[in-house]
Amino acid sequence: MAQDPQPLVNAEGESLTIDQALENLRQTADTGLRYYAAWWLGRFRVSIPEAIAGLVSALEDEGDRAPDGGYPLRRNAARALGKLGDRTVVPALIQCLGCNDYYVREAAAQALESLGDPQAIPALRSLLAGGVAAAVAVPDKPHLVQPYNAVLEALGTLGATDAIDEISPFLEHEVAQVQNAATRALYQLTGEATYCDRLVQRLQEPNLQLRRSAMMDLGAIGYLPAAQPIAATLAENSLKLIALQGVLESHLRQTGFPKFGLTDDARQVLVLMDELL
C-alpha cells in the first residue's frame, strides 16, 4: 500500500526513494528521469509540499518536447497532480487548459475532475465553445480539437448544472465515446436514470471499444443497476472489475460504509466481482 516503508517499488521492479524522485524531477539534464519521477510521485501518492511544488513548476516546463511539439513532462505532471488531492494547484491546472498541446489539456481536465474544485468550471466550459459544430477532428491527428470526453466528464463530476444546455447537444456528437461522456455527465447533473439506461444498452454494442467505454462510464458514475449488465458484457475481466469497483465504491459512499456495514446490494456486487477474479 502507498504508505509502506520506502523504497517504493513500481510494477517493473524499479525503486526510488522520495528524495531521489524529487531530485530527479528537479534536475534538467535527463528528461527521461524527470518524466518518470513525475509519474512516480503521482503513482505513490507523494503529496508533500516539495512534490507539489516540483510538479507545479513542471507544468511550465519547456525542456521536454515531443516530436509533435507536445510537452510530455507537463502531461505527466498534470496527471500526477490530479492524484495528489491538493487543491492549491487548481489555478495552475486551469492555465494548462490553454496549452497548445492537446494531451496537456486532456490531462489537466482529468486532473481538475479528480480534484473536485468547482472553481475550474468556467475554464472547462470555455473549451466547449462553438458546440458540436466546432467539435471536429484535427487533420492528421487521432483526436478532436478539444479533449471533449475529459471536459464533459469533469463538468459532470464537478456539478456544473449551469452547463447542461451546452452539454446536451453532445449526446448527438458523431463520436460514440463523446456521446457516452455527455450521457454520463447529464446523469450526474440531473440524476435521471434514462441517461444511464442509454449506457447500459451500449454494453450490447458489437464494437468492443464502445462496450469498454460504456462500461467505464457506468463504473465512473457508480450506477448500481448496471452491476449485473457490466458483469455479463463481453469484455476483459480486468476492466469489468474496475467498472464494478466504481459501482461498488459509489454505493459504499452513499450508504455510509464502513460505519453502517454492508448492504445486500453491496454483497451482490462483491459476488459478481469474486466471479471475475
Binding site: 469497483q245 461498488l248 465504491e249 459504499l252 459512499r253 460504509f257 464502513p258 453491496a266 462483491l270
Partner: peptide, 8 residues
C-alpha cells in the same frame, strides 16, 4: 486504502 478491498 481501497474501499472495495475493505468491503471484501
Amino acid at each position: 486504502e481501497t474501499p472495495a478491498v475493505q468491503a471484501r
